[in-house]
Design a protein around this nucleic acid. Structure first.
Lengths: 130, 130
DNA sequence: AGAGGTCGTCTACCTTTGTAGACAGTCGTC
DNA sequence: GACGACTGTCTACAAAGGTAGACGACCTCT
C-alpha cells in the first residue's frame, strides 16, 4: 500500500484523542495522569502518540511556558462520523438495521435524546414513503 | 503492547471479510474477481488476507477439490457489534446522540426497518422514564 | 504420460503502529 | 547562577499490516 492519505487514528491514538476531546485542552502530563489506571503507557509512549496525532492533523498545540496544550483540531463529530461511515460500509444490507438497533440500545441516550432520534426517524419514514 | 487477543480485522481485511459475508461461501478466485475494479490487489495479496482472516478466526474454510471455500466463522452481526461498540466508546457523552443520528440518516433503512427502530426507541424511552 | 493451468503455502520486504530510552532545552527556585 | 524537575525531540526497535513473487502440489485435457 502506497502512502495512505486518510490518516485515520489508530486504536492507541483514538484512546488519547477521545481523552483530549473529553477533557478540553490538556498538557501531556494531564493526559498521562488521566490514563493512569487505564493503561500503563510510559511518558514517552504518550508523547509519541500525541505527536503523531498532531502530525496526522487531529490535534493542534498551543505553546504555554515550556510545554504544549493539546486540543482537537477537527470537530470530534466529524472524525466520529467518518469512522461511523466506515462501519456502516462494512455491514451488508441485512445487517445494517440490527447493527443500528444494537448501537442505539447500548448508547445510553437519555429521554430527550431518544425523543430527538425518534423525531428524526419519523421524518425519514415520511420521506421513505414518498 | 503485548500480544493482542482481540484479533480484530484490519481495514484491508474488513474489505475481504464483508465481501465474503455478502456473497456467501467464496473461493479465493471469486473474491479476486469481485474485487476487480475496486482494488488492484494481486492474487497473492488477496490470498494472504484470506489466510490471515482464517488465522484470526473470522473465516473458516471447506476444502473443495484442490481449493478452499471461505465462509464466515462468526456471525457478521457479532463482529459488527464489536466494532460498533468501539466506535461508541470513542464518542463522548455529548457526541453519541449526533453520531447515531448521522448513522441512521445515512444507513438507507427502508420503511419497515425504520418502523422497527422506532419501536425500539419507544421501548427504551419508556424504560428511561422509569 | 505430459503440458498447461490453477491453487495454496512460504518467504520476503517495506510501512505503520506500539512502546520506550536517552538527551538537551527551559523554568522556577534557593 | 547553579540545581533539580519537567518538557519536548530524536532515535530505536519489535510487531503488525500491506503487498507480492516464487514455487511445489494438483487437476485436467489430450
Amino acid at each position: 500500500m502506497p502512502p495512505r492519505y486518510t490518516e485515520d487514528p489508530t486504536p492507541a491514538e483514538w484512546k488519547i484523542l477521545s481523552l483530549v476531546w473529553d477533557e478540553g485542552p490538556l498538557a501531556a502530563r494531564d493526559v498521562l495522569s488521566s490514563l493512569e489506571g487505564e493503561t500503563d503507557w510510559s511518558t514517552s509512549t504518550v508523547k509519541t502518540l500525541l505527536r503523531r496525532l498532531v502530525d496526522k492533523g487531529h490535534l493542534r498545540t498551543r505553546k504555554v511556558g515550556n510545554s504544549f496544550l493539546y486540543s482537537a483540531s477537527k470537530s470530534p463529530l466529524r472524525s466520529l462520523r467518518r469512522a461511523g461511515e466506515d462501519l456502516l460500509g462494512r455491514a451488508s444490507g441485512a445487517t445494517v438495521a440490527p447493527l443500528l438497533a444494537h448501537l442505539v440500545k447500548n448508547s445510553g441516550l437519555d429521554s430527550a435524546e431518544l425523543e430527538n432520534l425518534r423525531a428524526l426517524i419519523d421524518r425519514l419514514a415520511k420521506e421513505a414513503e414518498a
